[in-house]
């Protein structure tokens, strides 16, 4: 059980029958996008009717680096004025 090195890696995103958005479910190897779709159907959907599958070659995905976590995500947490929590919402507006 080994995958030939020339078979690229694909990331698989699936929207379930009643799902609102595609979620990443895993990855697999396939020769091309068509084969990746077919494999994804067999490996990840178990023949569920009415699902939508996206496959993306892993090489196409740019991920944020773990080391960037601070600069990328922290500033907002320490600046309460960036969070719109100081407004009184009139009752007739209801929940927002």
């Amino acid at each position: 059980m080994s995958n030939a090195p020339e078979l690229p890696l694909w990331e698989v995103f699936i929207r379930g029958q009643h799902g609102l958005s595609h979620r990443h479910v895993g990855s697999l190897h396939a020769a091309d996008a068509e084969a990746a779709l077919k494999n994804a159907r067999d490996v990840y959907t178990r023949r569920n009717e009415g699902v939508s599958i996206w496959v993306v070659e892993a090489a196409q995905i740019t991920a944020s680096a773990p080391g960037d976590k601070g600069p990328l995500f922290e500033p907002a947490n320490s600046k309460v004025y960036r969070h719109p929590t100081f407004f009184d919402i009139p009752d007739e507006i209801g929940s927002m």
Partner: peptide, 15 residues
């Protein structure tokens, strides 16, 4: 089952 040339093919054949 468990012998196919690749995980994806193995599952597809079982299906």
């Amino acid at each position: 089952c468990g012998q196919a040339p690749g995980l994806e093919e193995d599952i597809a054949l079982a299906n």
